[in-house]
Write a protein that binds this DNA or RNA. Structure first.
Lengths: 312, 312
DNA sequence: ATGAAAGCGCTAACAT
DNA sequence: ATGTTAGCGCTTTCAT
């Protein structure tokens, strides 16, 4: 592989002049430019990125930490990130965390080693204080409200949409509501927000027996319906964390000659459109785009969107 | 940020000794090791990856070229790749190509610049000869039968499963079959394989009017059913390129009081399990794992699997 | 077991 | 406009 020195020697110019034409800088005569470019073409030369990165002190990689990639939340967010990254010259590195703190910590250490220019946490198990601590080594963006922590963030304010959704169900005079949620943790922000909104509207806590977490797919919804119906045969209303999950619930009802239930989806997947059910749009794609934007910035930013309750 | 020289100075040892303890090499006295590690901890030092990569002549990034990420084919393949990469110390860089040759060419050039150690093409628009040409700059793995081309490859032999599927439909004495396929190109390998198998079993070409390409999702299946039923109201059998697509078709039939059709899915998504329909497992996850393995190897390998027709 | 020094290939400050 | 050279921070050969 020829190096910049080879080009310099063969063209009769110096390395700095070659470097100048490579980087399209000023102060290069047409003659020099032409001669050098000829040699470059002749020797089939391309500059070495590793050397360039070392010299520049950083590479063009943005790490994206995500626990797994089979939930629309991560898919849509990632698509937004990719979309924004596409024409930027930056690369997206996929960093699976599996909700493991040690793994997350390792990625932070890699940021310190300059393996990435910035890190986007689509979700995190580590305390925000830890993330904050690493911001001195590179930009870090998280996807939730960082509260007091000095971390760049993009997130959607979910409460209003949740309130609207429960209000809608209240107006339908439903008796019981199955709550299908994402994480299994009662302390997760989503869980808290949903139960909070529920209480505000119905003036009581949701029935623990009708709550299930860990929902990711159509299949999960199907099985959840099975479980909940066993506990409460008359159940015919579900608030779910995804359109596909709702579709699974619906399928279970259909398959077992139960009346089609009242459903609320989330993520605004196209299935909600087809099944004509209400959904909640958290604007994850847009969030992803914004997250990437913040990752490139070196200032602190917080960017809040508003989730939207959508009736068919 | 402290460098290896700082550690050397402060510990009283030389740079090379420090390097030895960093890389856990032999020939370091316990005293030296201890002293050096103390200083490392004290100064909160970590080695710089950029410098390391330059010195080593390559980084630990594997680029994965994929046209888009909303088809289970790519998702499952990617999951397999990620799974294999997870504990390897290598990173997966997502390289969206959008079926664009110029973009693909650019990724190949980046391989040449040593921006990646290897490249996996889950799909490619560029001729295989071009990919082959770039193998001198790093390992390249493609996900189809490379034929005469000297490129490492993983793929699944689809024909037997297609034959089995059509045989199954024949045994059911279906009159017409809607064919829902992936790409819109009549020359794509899949298209050729499917129509070939069809002809072998039914001794005639499939009806062009009942073929639709570009299927990616539940929604696509739903709309395709709509179109095909308009052309052929009695249609009640579909061979599809995905379980979700089949699910969409089924939904259309249900929503329009049409009898539930005979369906064959693909990709062995869980929906086929729930909907109790036959499917074809191309083992994409396994393929992905293998693709990553080959990416790390510097020899030429080809690895063929066998697709599997699965009856519920 | 330890150290000195020569790269790795490029950028950029400085000199001419 | 062009050239010289000192880094960037690490690994590795070759001495000792």
């Amino acid at each position: 592989m020829p190096t910049i020195r080879d080009i310099a020697r063969k063209s009769g110019y110096s390395v700095s002049t070659v470097s100048r034409v490579l980087n399209q800088q000023k102060y290069v005569s047409d003659a020099a430019k032409e001669a050098i470019e000829a040699v470059i073409k002749q020797l089939d030369y391309v500059p070495n990125s590793l050397a360039r990165d070392l010299s520049f002190g950083q590479n063009k990689n943005i790490g994206v930490v995500l626990p797994h990639n089979d939930h629309p939340y991560f898919n849509q967010l990632l698509n937004g990130i990719m979309d924004a990254a596409f024409s930027s010259g930056y690369h997206i590195v996929l960093l699976p965390s599996e909700y493991n703190r040690t793994v997350e910590r390792d990625y932070l250490e890699q940021l310190k080693r300059k393996n990435f220019t910035a890190l986007i946490f689509t979700s995190h198990e580590l305390p925000l204080a830890v993330l904050e601590d690493y911001t001195r080594y590179g930009q870090i963006v998280c996807c939730e409200n960082p509260g007091q922590h000095h971390i760049s963030a993009v997130y959607s304010n979910r409460e209003p949409a949740y309130l609207a959704a429960f209000n809608y169900l209240k107006s339908l005079e439903v008796q019981q509501i199955g709550l299908l949620l994402s994480r299994n943790l009662a302390k997760s922000p989503t869980w808290v927000a949903v139960t909070g909104a529920y209480q505000q509207i119905f003036h009581q806590k949701p029935d623990q027996q009708l709550m299930i977490g860990g929902m990711r797919s159509f299949e999960d919804g199907y099985r959840a319906a099975e479980q909940l119906i066993a506990r409460q045969p008359a159940l015919n209303c579900y608030f779910t964390n995804g359109d596909d999950i709702a579709a699974g619930v619906r399928q279970y009802h259909l398959d077992h000659q139960l009346p089609v239930p009242i459903l609320i989806g989330q993520e605004k997947q196209l299935s909600s459109l087809l099944l004509k059910m209400p959904t909640i749009d958290h604007h994850f794609f847009t969030l992803g785009q914004k997250a990437f934007e913040l990752a490139l910035s070196n200032q602190h930013h917080e960017c809040a969107f508003e989730s939207e309750f959508i009736r068919p």
